[in-house]
Design a protein around this nucleic acid. Sequence first.
DNA 1: TTATTAATCAACCATATGGTTGAATATATA
DNA 2: TATATATTCAACCATATGGTTGATTAATAA
Lengths: 123, 123
Amino acid sequence: MTQAISVNEQQLDLLFHALSNQTRRALLAQLRSGPRIVTDLARSYKMSLNAISKHLLVLEKAGLIDRKIEGRIHICQLQAEPMMSAEKWLQNYQEFWSNNLDSFAEYVEQKYSDESKDKDEKS
Amino acid sequence: MTQAISVNEQQLDLLFHALSNQTRRALLAQLRSGPRIVTDLARSYKMSLNAISKHLLVLEKAGLIDRKIEGRIHICQLQAEPMMSAEKWLQNYQEFWSNNLDSFAEYVEQKYSDESKDKDEKS
DNA sequence: TTATTAATCAACCATATGGTTGAATATATA
DNA sequence: TATATATTCAACCATATGGTTGATTAATAA
């Protein structure tokens, strides 16, 4: 029923959860410019290093970053592939928002083309 | 720094959070085939109607469904547009995963094209 | 060796989450 | 009218989340 979604549900849970926090999204954004070490990443935030450490763990569990340990420093690196799963999942709904946008466009067009000439009372 | 993301962060929090639960994703999937009333939606799950009611509220707050109340029944309807924000956000990372996929493709090609006959290292 | 630095671990706290059960509130139906 | 149906509200519970502070561990630097 409702055409299987095909991606691992547990993985999607972790992934969407990881993305549902502003700090974590900001961390990912930072990593777009290249690998960074934990202390460096943490510098931008008001919260403690420990808090950032925890956020990084959440991202790691979701597969969104990996880390290479070199001596006492941990080098974090973006791993964006899991986002493909999210993309794929979202694409199951693409038709809906584009349909809606189409009808919204129609609505706007109708509304402003002739400014309430005739009352559209639906079906 | 790190090129602003441009979508409302609070909205993304609600949206990704709403999507981070399997039951809620399943509810959305059900709604792809058209509007449904709460009791009907709830029928597919082992959990209580109340639990589903709460899940629907989460989806509603994220803007992913709306409801039309007709007498005692609530007709829920998919509103997929907010997913566009998620899409847009994810697309900031598309280059990363496609780069990775490209190099993976190269790797596969190299590995299986001639099964280590001669090493084509074509920069 | 002794500090200092990088990071995690552990314990704690307040609040959120996901679920339950048992009203309560309307609205339909007999 | 009385009763059944659709849904939410309210209270509760266990666990998760997001943060804190204070060790602890390991690697560097003095």
